[in-house]
């Protein structure tokens, strides 16, 4: 039996960023009905902008880091304001497919501008290392875990306590009725796009440190986040948070077993399929009329 402790510690840290990204996806979906598949590409583009600013040395480092978050918020907001209303009445599948277009545009742009060389960002917090069992946990990994929990808690409170949050929940239930009640739908949706984008930018910056600033790798890291969101049924922030951690821990834990390590990247898919099967079975067992 291999020593699992370092792998579980690293998996917990990895799961934090999956969870954070998953929560960002769920918030946007609940408010707008859009599953943003370009989430990873937006974060990756922001991280590369940060790298360029650091490389050029034009601005202080903290402004370069902030640029990633600002880009995430701005790019997502612009997309939401421009394409949100025309797609508002369309099927969620159509809305998700539209974000694939944004993903491909950003992916092509990144390959064109930054594709030729390897890039890397090292946040100052990545130099703070703490030994936990046989693994070394960096300050950035700790921030990733804390950030995921803070984002989830903050979002849950925001949705429950604030007027905009209440409006977002109402939008999730029925956009048309909410509009007839005088809620400024477009403004509330714009707030959801902006909030989701800011989380996306933050996640991109952290992930570029935790898994590397690889264009394709970061772009398609949306997949485990999507799996976490699916396990949360695109509704529950807390289940999404837990699922993100679970995916990270299981995937990293499997790394220790050479017999199955080769297949560990299937973890998000396997867990998402198992969860969907579980939901389907539970729905089948629910007596008619006892559930909405």
């Amino acid at each position: 039996m291999p020593d699992l402790k370092p792998f579980l510690v690293l998996g917990f840290a990895l799961g934090g960023v999956f969870a954070m990204s998953g929560v960002g996806l769920v918030v946007l979906y609940r408010a707008t009905g859009v599953l943003n598949l370009a989430y990873g590409a937006i974060g990756a583009t922001g991280a590369l902008i940060t790298w360029s600013l650091l490389d050029a040395g034009w601005v202080p480092d903290w402004i370069a880091y902030l640029a990633c978050i600002v880009f995430g918020g701005a790019a997502t907001l612009v997309y939401g304001v421009l394409f949100g209303p025309p797609f508002a009445a369309r099927d969620p599948l159509v809305k998700a497919t539209a974000t694939l277009g944004l993903l491909l545009i950003l992916l092509g742009t990144m390959q064109w501008v930054w594709g030729r060389d390897p890039h890397g960002i090292t946040l100052p917090t990545s130099r703070w290392n703490y030994a936990v069992f046989d693994a070394r946990v960096s300050g950035t990994q700790i921030i990733g875990v804390v950030f995921a929990i803070v984002v989830t808690t903050g979002t849950a409170v925001f949705l429950r306590v604030t007027k905009v949050g209440t409006a977002m929940r109402a939008l999730a239930d029925d956009r048309e009725i909410t509009a007839t009640l005088g809620v400024p739908v477009r403004r509330v949706e714009a707030a959801a796009w902006l909030g989701s984008g800011i989380v996306c930018g933050g996640a991109g910056l952290l992930l570029s440190n935790l898994v590397g600033l690889d264009i394709v790798g970061l772009t398609f890291l949306v997949i485990p986040a999507l799996a976490a969101a699916l396990i949360g049924r695109l509704q529950s922030l807390w289940v999404t948070l837990a699922a993100g951690f679970l995916i990270g821990i299981v995937q990293s834990g499997l790394t220790a077993f050479s017999e199955v390590a080769e297949y560990r990247t299937l973890t998000p898919f396997v867990l998402a399929i198992l969860a969907l099967l579980w939901f389907a079975i539970r729905r089948g067992q629910t007596p008619a009329g006892s559930s909405s």
Partner: peptide
Amino acid sequence: LEDVPINDPAGLAQR
């Protein structure tokens, strides 16, 4: 044999 891009480099390094 490792899937690329590597999405958990720290775990692979330990392995």
